[in-house]
Design a protein around this nucleic acid. Structure first.
Lengths: 214, 214
DNA sequence: TAGATTGTTAATCGATTAACAATC
DNA sequence: TAGATTGTTAATCGATTAACAATC
């Protein structure tokens, strides 16, 4: 549980999955779970579960297993889901407006506070309880309001410039849905999301599957 | 290039990224690229690029590099993006309708052909050029039309039952946006997508970043 | 106590990187 | 030919799995 020890991204990317499965167990009214039981549900090895959890601390009890509620709370806290983040959305097109309407964000502590776009016909449009503002207001908004994370959902051509702007204004995290990947220096954290990538992998795997049957 | 050799999912999951970067190069009018140049753009090692590509064949030329167009076409073909897939969407809620409106699907060869939901108020609703049908029509539709991939975007409570139905009807691939993960036997391929997972990882990394600055 | 299951070390496996001979 | 860069083997690194002593 030495906090100076760097935890690998492989482990971190599994945390949301643990979070989901534990939440399900909790909702089902199950109060304890062993690494073996959890491993069967999650289709990973019990060994991996114990290794992963021990990166953060000894949450279990020998001979007993893990308390579902306690472990859930631990992972919630590790992921920072017990604190709230303030988000802005840049780009109110197809993906952008879908994200704005996505209720799972606020239930996980991610509060969308403002929406910006450049297209005149979108300005003033209501998305949930927010009104789309002109991108020219962005600078002023960020200087007067706390912003933790910027969601970028703009076309290829606008991505680089807007990312520069956002980072220049001191925002340290970008959830990027734009077609082009972002790479910044180590003091900005980025998640590049490409929905279609996953579909391409699915298509590939389907093709291979069918090939092996023939 | 032995086709019997199993290619690791780690490599396969990078293919869409190669595809995107090569498409960009192609659009920029760049006709050749070395693994070193590509590695700088993509922020991965040149070694990895050469290893990855050589899983599928020797596409390069010593002393020259790779032809952007030829390599792009190769990867497009490996991913099966030169063939078309027929998709159905189950669940026309927030995520479902966003996916239905997502133009990037058809441009990559994924044609959405029918949409189903159970909610009376959604039946008959127009999404792009498709009308939402009642889920009771699903069986009949699948028996009379080719379907390669089902997109599942339904609530937790409906996921398992609908997945069973879809697999029972012989569909071999599911792009699953439902809150609960699906795991089927090896003859069905699944991609479980959880948008918020990526945001949670971003939140975690942001928190760690800020911690290290203090 | 006996049984169960963790936490943790050691072994294995796979993926990434480095190096370099082959060759365009 | 000389220079460049691939394809490929070997070395390294990291992640996963196995094993088991510790302990509830």
């Amino acid at each position: 549980m030495d906090s100076s020890k760097k935890i690998s991204q492989a482990v971190i990317r599994r945390l949301p999955r643990y979070y989901r499965y534990l939440k399900d167990l909790y909702r089902e009214g199950i109060s304890r779970v062993s690494s073996k039981e959890l491993s069967e549900r999650m289709h990973i090895t019990a060994s991996q579960i114990r290794q992963d959890l021990n990166c953060f601390g000894g949450f279990g009890q020998q001979g007993y297993g893990y308390s579902v509620e306690a472990l859930f709370k631990e992972i919630e806290s590790i992921l920072g889901l017990d604190t709230r983040y303030k988000l802005i959305l840049i780009g109110a097109g197809n993906i952008g407006s879908a994200l704005a309407k996505y209720e799972n964000l606020s239930t996980r502590g991610f509060d969308l506070c403002a929406i910006f776009d450049v297209k005149e016909e979108l300005i003033g449009k209501q998305l949930n309880d927010l009104m789309v503002q002109h991108i020219d207001n962005l600078k002023n908004y960020v200087m007067n309001n706390e912003v933790d994370i910027a969601i970028l959902a703009v076309p290829h051509s606008a991505t680089a410039k807007l990312a520069e702007l956002v980072v220049g204004l001191g925002i340290k995290a970008i959830w990027n849905y734009s077609p082009s990947d972002l790479h910044f220096s180590h003091d900005v954290v980025i998640e590049n999301v490409h929905l279609v990538d996953s579909l391409m992998v699915l298509g590939y795997n389907l093709k291979e599957k069918l090939k092996s049957i023939d």
